[in-house]
Design a protein around this nucleic acid. Structure first.
Lengths: 168, 168
DNA sequence: TTGACTTAGTTAGCTCGCTAATTATAATTA
DNA sequence: TAATTATAATTAGCGAGCTAACTAAGTCAA
């Protein structure tokens, strides 16, 4: 994760521009600014969740379970939905089981598999975190007016679609 | 780092909204979208750097050294500038020394300290990476026109300044 | 119906962050 | 000048990702 405190200023970039023709200082600064804000937001969110004994990984598992009508899912499904490896999900699930926020239900039809279910302690944890989380999201996002925010998101989506320029 | 594949849609959020009054679906989706694009860009950059045997940490160290007039710095200074702990910088510096991209110069005035210097192999590595990096940044950022891009960055800066709503 | 694949979860071992403790050296101050 | 405190680098050990290898259980096809 990019933690660079010193995003280069135009003066520093000038030195680099002498060596590298392709450098466009403004674009580089803007690119790094986007990366930095992404990491800053992520960090701030993690600090917030930590106050509740959670981090993004475990928090998402609880949320994914709450999305389900029966509050249950298999570790594999959770891994796919959370976008982490099965090994990582195994660790997250075990930690949540240890903390007593989810329960394990062995599958009756498949001896390899089991379900995890959001239990009352897990639901209580979400009931504790989520209102505070939503209030903060509201506050943060309302620091930009609706029209500007919509436009910003639209531009970010364009950027996302063009990420692949780095892959060739 | 947020890797959530399934950003919730309005339908899922409706279920959550029944339980949590404070939820504003659009704002949550937009917030998560910003986080996701940040992680996507970071990942794409890391994949790019990996093709050159680097990752963000080591790459930044080389860049920070190249910024210096004498191409040298101490591990502590590098840690501060890169925004990582001294322990982390110790690992990065050792790896770069092992790879032969930087050289170690023991301090003559302070027996505890030493300088690291970008050497010719390190400079060659940067000369290999940076033009390709800058070209890709240009391509990516030009997917948005200048005015829209400037405005987007401006909004992101506002967001950054309001990150602290998560800290209270 | 048995042999070959596939799938679910786990484990081992890696990377790259971190903090806290340690070592060695400098610097300060009583 | 001796004792204390501060600083630079290192080390140990943790967390949360990862891949690859493994075990056990299903599935399918000859």
């Amino acid at each position: 994760m990019l933690e660079l405190k010193d995003i280069p200023d135009s003066q520093i970039l000038k030195k680099f521009a002498d060596r590298y023709d392709d450098l466009n200082p403004l674009l580089v600064i803007q690119f790094l600014t986007i990366l930095r804000i992404g990491t800053d937001l992520t960090e701030v969110l993690n600090n917030f969740l930590e106050k509740y004994g959670l981090l993004q990984g475990r928090w998402w598992v609880l949320i994914l379970l709450m999305r389900e009508d029966d509050l249950t899912s298999t570790p594999s499904q959770l891994a796919a939905k959370a976008g982490v490896s099965k090994a990582t999900m195994n660790g997250l699930v075990n930690r949540l089981l240890k903390d007593g926020l989810i329960s394990r239900i062995n599958s009756e039809v498949d001896g390899r598999s089991y379900l995890v279910k959001l239990n009352s302690l897990g639901q209580a944890k979400l009931d504790d975190v989520m209102p505070a989380y939503y209030r903060r999201v509201n506050k943060l996002m309302h620091s930009i007016n609706d029209a500007d925010r919509d436009q910003m998101i639209e531009q970010l989506m364009v950027l996302k679609q063009n990420c692949n320029v780095f892959e060739s």
